[in-house]
Amino acid sequence: MLANYGYKDASGDYFITIDTDKCNGCGDCAAVCPVDLFAGMDEDPNDPLRVEPVAIVAGTKKNKVKYECNPCKPEANRPPLPCVAACATAAISHSW
């Protein structure tokens, strides 16, 4: 399942996509994120019949992605994002 967390508002698209078929719930993304955007879950709230753990974008953060991700996304250049780099299964992508 492609879980698209985030939003689109009048100023642009701000989505973080987690491919739950690739995610193994290891929690490495949560460990490296400086703003605690990710949370490791034992049960996928979007997939009640899944048994493996999974990462989600925390409910309190998903509507602030544009602002929360700023420390890792300077306007001047595009360095590798820690969460994307930390994910061994390449399950995370950002829309911007």
């Binding site: 544009k66 602002y67 700023n70 001047a76």
Partner: peptide, 12 residues
């Protein structure tokens, strides 16, 4: 203010 400050932080 937090939204404006976040924008300022993005440019440093």
């Amino acid at each position: 203010a937090s939204r404006v400050v976040s924008m300022i932080r993005r440019i440093g």
